[in-house]
C-alpha cells in the first residue's frame, strides 16, 4: 500500500543551526502518529515542510495525497462568517451544506453565521478543525492545536479529534510536547530531539484510553525525553 507520508534523509538548516538532521519517517494511511519533543526540537519545522510551507530543504518529503493542517492558532479569516471559513477549505465560494455538516461534526451547530472573533478559543479551534476536514484530507497535520486551550477544553478536544479520526481515517501527524496527549491519541510516538528521531514507541493500548492505562508507558517515554519521573517523585 502507498504510504501517506514518506520522508527520507530530510535535513533543514536555518543558517548555521541544523533544525532537522536526516529524518526518515513513513506514515501508513490512517495511522495516528505523534511527534513529541521539547520546544525547538524541530517538530513544527517538520510539519511545515510536509504542509509545503517550506521547500528549501535537503532530502525528500513526499505527501502524495491531500494535506490539511490545523495550527496552534485557529487562523480563521475574521471577516468571513464561520461557515464561509469552513467552505474556504473546499476552495469554492459555495458549499454551505458541507460546511454545516462539518460544523455538526465538531459540535458547533448554530454557530454557522457567527463572526470568528465572537468565538471562544476552543470553538475557534473546532472551526479550524472543520475547515481542515472538509477537504477530506489523506493526511491531517496538527501543529499543537490544543496548546493554547485551557485544560478542560483540551480534554474535550482530545475526544473530538479521536472521534473525527476514527470516522474519516486520515493519517494524522500530531505535533505536541504533551506526553499524555500523545499517549492518549497516537498509534505511534516519535520522540524528536535536536532534529533527530531518538526513540519510537508503539502504543497498543485499546481505545478509548483512560489516563490510568497509560501510566506505565508514560514513564518510559518521559525517560526518552530526559525526564526521570521516578527520581522527580
Amino acid at each position: 500500500m502507498a504510504k501517506a507520508v514518506s520522508v527520507r534523509g530530510l535535513t533543514k538548516a536555518f543558517g548555521a543551526r541544523t533544525v532537522l538532521d536526516g529524518i526518515d519517517l513513513e506514515v501508513q494511511p490512517g495511522e495516528f502518529v505523534a511527534l513529541l519533543g521539547r520546544s525547538g526540537c524541530g517538530k513544527s519545522t517538520l510539519l511545515r515542510i510536509l504542509a509545503g510551507l517550506d521547500r528549501d530543504v535537503e532530502g525528500t518529503a513526499e505527501v502524495p495525497g491531500t494535506v490539511s493542517i490545523a495550527f496552534q492558532q485557529p487562523r480563521l479569516l475574521p471577516w468571513r462568517k464561520v461557515w464561509k471559513n469552513i467552505s474556504l477549505g473546499l476552495h469554492k465560494p459555495d458549499g454551505r451544506e458541507v460546511a454545516l455538516k462539518a460544523l455538526e461534526e465538531v459540535r458547533l451547530t448554530g454557530h454557522a453565521d457567527a463572526w470568528p472573533l465572537t468565538l471562544s478559543g476552543g470553538e475557534a479551534q473546532r472551526v479550524s478543525l472543520a475547515r481542515a476536514l472538509v477537504r477530506e484530507p489523506d493526511v491531517l497535520l496538527l501543529d499543537e492545536p490544543f496548546g493554547a486551550l485551557d485544560a478542560l477544553t483540551r480534554l474535550a478536544m482530545h475526544h473530538l479529534v479521536e472521534d473525527l479520526w476514527a470516522r474519516h481515517k486520515p493519517a494524522v501527524l500530531l505535533v505536541t510536547h504533551d506526553v499524555d496527549e500523545a499517549l492518549l491519541l497516537a498509534d505511534r510516538i516519535l520522540v524528536l530531539d535536536e532534529g533527530r528521531i531518538v526513540a519510537t514507541h508503539h502504543v497498543d493500548l485499546p481505545r478509548p484510553r483512560r489516563r490510568a492505562s497509560v501510566v506505565e508507558q508514560r514513564t518510559r517515554v518521559l525517560a526518552d525525553l530526559g525526564v526521570d519521573v521516578e527520581e522527580a517523585a
Partner: peptide
C-alpha cells in the same frame, strides 16, 4: 497576518487568490 496567508496557502490558494481573499480584506 502572515499566519492567515500561510493557512490559505496550505488550502491550495494561488498568490492571486491569497491577495483577493486574505491580503486585501485585511487591509480594509
Amino acid at each position: 497576518d502572515p499566519g492567515l496567508v500561510e493557512a490559505a496557502k496550505v488550502l491550495g490558494y494561488s498568490r492571486f487568490e491569497r491577495i483577493v481573499h486574505v491580503v486585501l480584506p485585511s487591509a480594509v
